[in-house]
Each structure stands twice: as structure tokens, then as C-alpha cells.
Design a protein around this nucleic acid. Structure first.
Lengths: 161, 161
DNA sequence: TATTGTTATACTCTATAACTATA
DNA sequence: TATAGTTATAGAGTATAACAATA
């Protein structure tokens, strides 16, 4: 038995001579990292046909439900750097999904708005997004998924809410 | 009121004109991504003095508690590709933290073993690892952190346990 | 002087294929 | 033929600084 209590199930090194990870499991950064790999794979598997990466999907959906979003808003919502977002928007703009329009009230800012093609893709992608994590979340009950989402969201948003 | 129920708290677009994210929140991949950003920052802030990245930390700790681990074991445990792991181990080996020793029973495989310096660093890093996420996890109670870890771990390990 | 957004650069990570040596 | 590990390469993500335009 290892010194630090293995999370309860005595972590019986499963098949294929897996390693004892009990001394890493107290770090939620470690757990989110591994869980995220699975969820990312699920996303790519289902969104490949639409040629959408997670960031692009998120941008589409945010824009579909938020008028007059500028790049700062998007950066903050998605934890992206301004330079990174600029490149992603370039790509999406070349693809005809959105356009940047200078704000009248603050001519430094650009409103990012979806084209018709962008709106259509956002709608279709949002429709497909339900259930794409089904396989990855199979080990969790409906209630557990709900709780997990809320706990993660608390961390993401920081102390508030 | 948006079409899909905003997780319960009516998501009142908080300060600085944040965007409505309620149509993304059903994707746990989105939530893990944002939460992970916070947790990563916490890790770097606390491990900078030891010059350890998350992967390097994980490798050190795994090796400290697992004799005769080969690179395949590490790849599977950490969801790394073999080429990626080879480069990381090169770096750690040049730094004098570990060595690779051909297995006697299967001369294709390399056992990865910590040097004395590696063991010392593993011990120190593991000691420091407790509490580094304290600030990022402040919004969660002790019990919630426990639950969160278990739910994430279920996803990471797939269907089993 | 500060903010919005862009450009440029350098570094890291990821994915893949091609290779070797062993089995 | 398959597996353990390495090398090489290209693509994507990240961080930073420097810059233009506007406030």
C-alpha cells in the first residue's frame, strides 16, 4: 500500500502493467489534462466533417448568440491571447464565415459578425454538438455530468458564482 | 431567456460586458479547457523555481513510485506519443535527472530510472505539489474537489471504475 | 497615457511517417 | 510480422514584444 491513500479503490494497477498514479491524482490539473484529451478526441471525431476545431466552434456559437462582440470579449471568454485570436479570425474570415466591422462608438474596436454561411454553420455545429461526448462520458451518470460541468465552470470563472 | 437553460443561475453576463456562454456550457470539453488554463497557471507559478513543467513533474513522480517503468508505460499513463516522450526524456536526461537502461528481459525496451538528483527533485516537487492549486480551487469545497477529481478520473480512465 | 487590434518571432506541443533494433 | 524506441518534419498552440490607430 502506497503512502498516500489511493483515492479509495486501492488503485489495483490494471491491465497491461499500468503504472501507479496515486501520487499524481491529488492534482486536478493532472486529471483535467487527461480527461481533456479524451473529450478533445471525441470533438474532433464528430466535427471533422464540418472542418471545425474546438476554438472555431466556440467562436461560431458565441457569435451566434452575442451581437456586437468584439475581439476583447472573445479573448476573455475563451482565454485566448489577442494575437492568437487575430490569426484564428483571419482563417475563419478567409473561409467566409465572418467579417470584422469597425465599431462606430469606438473606432479602435472591431465587431465580429457572422456571415450567412457562418450562421448556418454555427446552427449545424451547435445541433451536432449535443451528444458528441456521449461515448467519452459513458462512465458518468446524467447527474454526475451535470455536477462535473458545474464544478469545472466554477474553477473556470474563478471565485464568482 | 435563451433557448437552452443556462445552467440554473440565469448566467447574468457579469462584469466587463462578458458574453453569453450558455450555449457552450453543455460541452464538458469546453469547461475542462477553461478550467485547465487556470490550473496550469497555478502549476507554473509554483513550480517555476524548480524549473519543472507539468509533464516533467508527472514523469518524475511516476518514476519515483514505479520501478522498472519503460517508455510505453509512461506514454500510456500520460497520454503522450512515443516521439514526444523521447524528446522530453532527452531533456531530462541531459539535465541529469534520469537515465535509460536497456531491459535484460526484452532488449528493445528501456527502463527509465531516476538518478539521485532526479529522486531528490521528485521528492521536493511532490512536497510542493500539495496546495499549489489552492487559489484556483478556492471556489470549491473540500468535498467538491474530491468529487471533481473522481469524476475527471473516470473520464480519463474510460469506462472502467 | 491606455486600449484595440495587428504583425512578427520564438518556443512548445502534436501528429505522422520513416527508420533501427529487437522479438 | 509486430513492438520499443528514435529521428525528422510539418502543423498548431502559446507567449512576448513591437507597432498603428484610436481613445
Amino acid at each position: 500500500m502506497p503512502k498516500t491513500a489511493p483515492s479509495k479503490t486501492a488503485s489495483p494497477r490494471s491491465t497491461k502493467s499500468d503504472l501507479d498514479q496515486s501520487h499524481l491524482s491529488h492534482l486536478l490539473g493532472f486529471q483535467t489534462s487527461l480527461a481533456h484529451v479524451r473529450l478533445q478526441k471525441a470533438f474532433f471525431a464528430h466535427m471533422k466533417e464540418l472542418d471545425l476545431r474546438p476554438v472555431e466552434f466556440s467562436i461560431l456559437v458565441l457569435l451566434a448568440h452575442n451581437d456586437k462582440a468584439n475581439q476583447q470579449n472573445l479573448c476573455r471568454s475563451l482565454a485566448l491571447s489577442a494575437p492568437r485570436l487575430a490569426l484564428i479570425l483571419d482563417r475563419m474570415q478567409e473561409r467566409g464565415l465572418l467579417s470584422r466591422e469597425r465599431s462606430d462608438t469606438d473606432r479602435r474596436a472591431h465587431h465580429v459578425v457572422l456571415t450567412e454561411a457562418g450562421q448556418a454553420l454555427a446552427l449545424e455545429a451547435e445541433r451536432r454538438s449535443h451528444g458528441i461526448e456521449e461515448a467519452a462520458l459513458a462512465p458518468l451518470s446524467r447527474g454526475e455530468r451535470q455536477i462535473l460541468g458545474e464544478l469545472l465552470s466554477k474553477i473556470a470563472r474563478g471565485t464568482r458564482a
